[in-house]
Amino acid sequence: MKSQITLITALFLSIFILSAQNKQQEVLIIGTMHTVPKIVKNSYKPMLRFAKNYKPEAIFVEAPMAKDSISWEYLKNGWSKGYQNFYKKSSSLQNSFNFNESKFNRIINKHFKDMNDEDLKYLIKSFIYKRDNGNFELYSYLKKHGIKGAKKATRHEDGDLTYKLALFMNHKRVINIDDQQTNKEYHNAWDKCRKEGTKNGNNLANSKLYKKNYNGAIFPAIFRGLGKHTNKRKSLQQLHDMASFSYVVKKTKGCNDGKKYFDERNMRITKNIAQHIVNSKKHRNVVIIGAAHVIGLEKEFKENYPSLKVILMNEY
């Protein structure tokens, strides 16, 4: 009898292990609005509830990767004052901070609630030293607001969604996946496309698409449904079309270049995500990124990483 019970137990255990090994890895993509107006300051609350219920094993964020020297070469003097200041602090600390790997690991392995102010200060300095902007922001947020996060809406995806989710899940790190290697060229192409579009109908087509997208969001936004509306496939496609210059009625050099740089950025971001997921073996992964990127990322995943199951927020 004992041998039979042992055999049955071993059989069930082997089936369970095999099932876990064969489980397909998922990528859940949540498109964000970045910063929302004060009148709809609570728009991220329903999105946070959704993300918590998903219970991700890893959280990917739209922040530059620490070792992406090409992006940082641009960002150190680029469009964002925040990234400029962060780069300066990082360069300074790399010459002066006495980073200790053992101390860092000891602190970061604590539960968030057990980290004191000195612990948080050390982690913040360490992430600046490592040029890890996403986690520098996470621990700065934790130090300022505590383990429950900001009481009042910050009106931004990081403060109202990403970092509250990370704290709730006790994720000690978020994963940076952005790529801004050709952002300067993209913005130059954008300006050129806009100048070219004054007489050929392109600017008019863009304006009509923008108004359509904006007007469609008004009613959902009133009832805290802006996040869900933004993640409708129709809305995502409109945002993608505007960002990728797919709206143009006449192709021009500037618009073609802009589309090329946008598509290439999405391709590299997808590669950053996919490589990490495949290496990590984690099954439930959430990507929190500007909504204009979602359609492009979905396309890249399906074409180049078919082993990963791609899910959009509204289709989960």
Rank of each mutant, 00 (worst) to 15 (best):
N135E: 00
N135S: 04
N135Y: 02
N135L: 02
F136C: 05
F136R: 07
F136S: 06
E137D: 11
E137H: 08
E137S: 10
L138G: 00
L138T: 02
Y139V: 01
Y141W: 01
Y141L: 00
L142N: 01
L142K: 02
L142Y: 07
K143W: 00
K143F: 00
K144I: 01
H145W: 01
H145R: 00
H145L: 00
G146W: 00
I147Q: 06
K148I: 07
K148E: 12
G149H: 00
G149A: 03
G149S: 02
A150I: 02
A150P: 01
A150D: 02
K151A: 00
K151W: 01
A153S: 13
A153Y: 11
A153M: 07
A153G: 05
T154H: 04
T154G: 06
R155F: 05
R155Q: 13
R155W: 05
R155N: 14
R155S: 11
H156Q: 13
E157N: 08
E157L: 07
E157R: 05
D158H: 13
D158K: 12
D158V: 10
G159F: 02
D160I: 03
D160C: 08
L161E: 06
T162S: 10
T162F: 07
T162M: 13
T162R: 05
Y163M: 08
Y163T: 08
L165Q: 08
L165H: 05
A166R: 02
A166H: 04
L167Y: 01
L167E: 05
F168R: 07
M169C: 05
N170W: 03
H171I: 00
V174C: 09
V174W: 07
I175Y: 09
I175A: 09
I175G: 08
I175S: 09
N176T: 11
N176R: 06
I177V: 15
D178K: 06
Q180K: 13
Q181G: 02
Q181N: 06
Q181D: 03
T182Q: 07
T182N: 07
T182G: 00
T182K: 10
T182H: 08
N183W: 12
N183S: 14
K184E: 14
K184T: 12
E185T: 06
Y186G: 07
Y186L: 12
Y186K: 11
H187L: 14
H187V: 11
N188F: 11
N188S: 12
N188V: 06
N188I: 08
A189F: 05
A189R: 10
W190G: 11
W190Q: 15
W190S: 15
D191N: 15
K192G: 12
R194Y: 15
R194W: 15
K195A: 14
K195P: 10
K195E: 14
K195H: 14
K195L: 14
E196P: 08
E196G: 12
G197I: 09
G197N: 13
G197M: 11
T198V: 15
T198E: 15
T198D: 13
T198P: 08
K199H: 14
K199D: 15
G201A: 10
N203M: 14
L204P: 03
